[in-house]
Design a protein around this nucleic acid. Structure first.
Lengths: 199, 199
DNA sequence: CGTCCATCTTACTCAGAGTAGGTTACTAGC
DNA sequence: GCTAGTAACCTACTCTGAGTAAGATGGACG
């Protein structure tokens, strides 16, 4: 949408435009059903350009995922600065996450699609990109908790991330659950544990 | 592998054989990279037969997923019978899950591939199939906890499932973590909550 | 005002999903 | 045994969409 009629465009700007369009198409149609031809046409460019810049369909998806994930990281990281207690930091981070889910549907939809790359050459890099989020949680926790052993802390971080992802997917089916409620549900289990609710 | 030379085979048996082969190919190559031609050849039958019985590649994957999930459900359900307390039931269920992950690599790999179907017509049915697991957890919990409100209980179940899935994926990268340890890590967060570890 | 290179295009190849329409082996009834 | 009838099966295609080879074009800078 940025300056319509112009033909030639510097590489960096064109790439950004391609990612922007691809993000929409991938999240609308799903990775498998999205076609490179359609993306190319929407960008207003021919297909080989996409391959020139991203090498493959997978590569393009990967670029989109990286973009979305960096935004997510930015948002959650910002949310936790200035938190006084561990509980407060956790709650703020969770709330930022669930707000992101609601407000940036396409971006979140994209992150869910990364699993489609399992078994492909890009799988490793996807995991690497994914670790970004767990690292953030792990770092956050190690600032507030007595870590004891690192493996346990890492496991806890993975645990939190997985739990929130799944809860977010669940939220999509429940419009009545807003970010605040979701955060509360998450905190309820995460912070207090199930023990506190045993009969 | 069941009786080699026989050509014709009753529908039900052939279907089982196809699913068995497809499970291996899908988990070895990944959904996208697996080809129907290869599966057909390995089964020792022509491609249209696969379509006769499963309609599409997606349909075949779906059948594999259903199979694996039903095994998983069986295993975890069995593990929790006869548990005296909520804590015990949870621990047994978790352990059964992590043992399944270790011992049935292909089946688990398959379950991870279901996300590849997001955005396709089968997506809804996948979610339906997936709910099986959360329902089990939810039922289990409602037997031991004061549920208060159902929505909260459902959310907690999703939470647990997501957390365990992610932790299981993490375990794949850490051979030194056995099912017992994984269970302990999970119980640690789930049961006691993070609060108990705050500095 | 020509040369160079980055941007961009047309016009293909090729693998693999899905299908139309015919063929063969097993089985039931005579 | 012999002839339907049908369920299991096959050959030989079509068609979509990822990926590519080879060349055209616009513009920046001497």
């Amino acid at each position: 949408m940025t300056t319509a009629k112009r033909k030639r465009m510097p590489r960096a700007e064109r790439m950004r435009q391609m990612v922007e369009v691809a993000e929409q198409v991938f999240s609308a149609r799903g990775y498998a059903a999205a076609s490179m031809d359609e993306i190319a046409e929407l960008v207003g460019v021919s297909k080989p350009m996409l391959y020139e810049y991203f090498n493959s369909k997978e590569g393009l998806l990967l670029a989109c995922i990286r973009e979305s994930r960096s935004v997510l990281r930015e948002v959650t990281e910002q949310a936790t600065v200035g938190a006084a207690t561990a509980e407060d930091a956790l709650r703020r981070g969770l709330l930022a996450f669930f707000v992101f889910i609601r407000d940036r549907r396409e971006a979140w939809s994209l992150l869910r699609h990364e699993m489609a790359l399992i078994g492909t050459p890009a799988a490793d890099e996807v995991e690497e990109t994914r670790r970004q989020q767990t690292d953030l949680i792990a770092a956050l926790m190690s600032g507030y908790f007595d870590s004891g052993d690192d493996l346990r802390a890492e496991a806890a971080a993975e645990f939190v991330v997985g739990a929130c992802e799944r809860l977010a997917i669940w939220c999509e089916r429940h419009d009545e659950v807003n970010p605040e409620t979701a955060t509360e549900y998450a905190m309820d289990v995460l912070w207090s544990g199930l023990q506190s609710r045993a009969r």
